[in-house]
Design a protein around this nucleic acid. Structure first.
Lengths: 194, 194, 194, 194
DNA sequence: TATGAATGAGGGTTCATTCAT
DNA sequence: CATGAATGAACCCTCATTCAT
């Protein structure tokens, strides 16, 4: 019955949950193991979270907010389209490396009863950001002409695939290699040697 | 009580399993529901499969073989590298559309206790196929020079992302659009208008 | 895994439930003990009853029906009011002796979330039966004049008290003694020596 | 944190307990709710009472004493047997109306692991009081001859039934109506019109 | 005294698996 | 082969009780 601050305890629970949920998935994860991992008792979890699902939801919302905040924080300044795209890619891949666990969990549980609509909204929002970058690039003559919606969708899917690969296979893919590949497909003139 | 051939019954079970496993995931799926969906009794499932895990494994192996067979069947004939890559992409995307359920299931349960190594082997094999195509393209002067391993890995990840997107969001992405995008990045001369 | 007929098993569960619920009350009763008493496994209970509450409800309904059927079966023939009242009392007391457990349980849990209205309806119906007997007795000159509603209510309460006493204290009260007492209060002329 | 006298706090706990125990029964009542109702913390309850059972016991004893004191306080003076019985009935019914909650609780939990013997002793004591009144009435020629033990038992059971009815159905039964009914059965000469 | 976060035994319930029919 | 009632380990969750503050 160690006395810890409530915030500390809640944080421990969330961390342990992340660990267990991402390893086992929602259904196979069990509260006993989360408690053990967090080195607290079972009952304590229920002081901070109403039940298993609410704990899970809380986790998801927390992490999603982190990513969203990062992307929103991307300075929209006077960068070229190439620079903007590179940064967009870099932020996403960095997030993937840092939040491998969460991504695994999220991919796994997508399609679950809760949160489908929100998820799609998130991706559509991301696609719009890419689309805007591409349109700017085309307008400024930096990128070759193309159907910006289709291309944005493909780039987002590519990013998703890379993130998935990083998360699942724990492989390291350099953001630059990906940027180079994508820019090759977008730039008007041949893309220079690195 | 119905008299059915053993093969027919086994097929019914596998189909029902696919349905239930892909909707609920491995852990949340339950045998009773599978039996109900297959319109057979619980006990019958245990005649054909030792237990839940073996049923699941069987399902996975079956479906994976289907894909592998398709790819192996791709005539390795005298196609140009571009043609070969286009066909590779087309086969994968077609498979994604046709086996949405399986992909969802597979993504979800990847990272499970069983089958990780096999999975990685499968992807590495695919990457090697792409790499060979790229190398051929470079040798024949069709593709620009590049680090074929890195590029192959990116293309495979891209494909994975597209497949994921198709499966999760039930979005339709035309193989040609993807091929165009990738070829833009690979071809020596500017890629022609569609 | 003895094979018993479903009906047999259900009966065993209901009997064990009666035993445990009436000894412990609804909240303190536990499924494990019921299963043990019925000499079946925990899971089996959930084959026959959705959950603890439904099991309890089933029990109550079953027993209540038994009493109601008995009373309805009382031949309304050409008896004097005294005879009718005597029989009414006798049926109730007999039921009390035979269903001690159920009465204990029912008294205990009355006022619970479920079934209050039905219960009151049942008692009001009983009161009406008594009232009719009294009215007949007064009309025929057998009973002295009185407010039949008030008296019926008192008689019903008395009966309830006797039943309670029988159930709680396991005391034997002879129906005749009670009938005599009540008839003393109702009859016009002095009630004869037994 | 509030500074209250210990006695005040204890009283608050007992009142809250009465409320919660009588609404939920012993097993379903919970300490957290009692603490909340009493507007004190959980821990404080354990300063004043060793545990849940002791709190419950204390409650019961307190209330029982109130009733006993009242009855003992009934002046045994030079009343006629009728008067004595009327007063006995009146005191009991008044108590029932004023302590509805307690009666509900008591009925509910009778038969519990603790206190059965004490309970029976209490009722036997009450029966003896009635018996004495009846004997006096017979001796003085006020009441007709009867088996005073049997009649006392019936009267006590009747009283119990009335109290139960008052408590459960929240019905109001006038003590006079009950006295009249009972006296009809006891008195030698016909009992006058109200 | 008073507090309320922490504990963990124990309750209700589910479900993969078995086996008599 | 086929059935589905029976089993019981293991799950999620509650709550009486403790104790550091």
């Amino acid at each position: 019955m160690n006395k810890r601050s409530g915030i500390e305890t809640k944080k421990r629970i969330l961390e342990a949950s992340m660990d267990v949920f991402s390893r086992k998935g929602y259904a196979a994860a069990n509260i006993r193991e989360i408690a053990k991992t967090a080195q607290i008792s079972i009952g304590t979890i229920y002081i901070y979270f109403k039940n298993k699902e609410e704990l899970y939801q809380n986790l998801i919302e927390n992490k999603k907010k982190e990513l969203t905040d990062r992307i929103v924080a991307m300075s929209p300044g006077k960068k070229s389209a190439s620079e903007a795209l590179k940064e967009f890619i870099r932020v996403h891949l960095e997030y993937a490396v840092r939040h491998r666990e969460f991504i695994l969990l999220h991919i796994r549980e997508h399609g679950f009863s809760f949160g489908i609509e929100k998820k799609r909204a998130f991706f559509n929002q991301q696609i719009e950001i890419i689309e805007r970058i591409i349109k700017n690039g085309i307008k400024s003559g930096e990128f070759r002409k193309s159907n910006s919606v289709d291309v944005a969708r493909i780039i987002m899917a590519t990013l998703r695939g890379i993130i998935l690969t990083i998360a699942l296979d724990n492989v390291n893919i350099k953001p630059e290699a990906l940027s180079d590949f994508i820019l090759c497909a977008l730039l008007k003139k041949e893309y220079g040697k690195k």
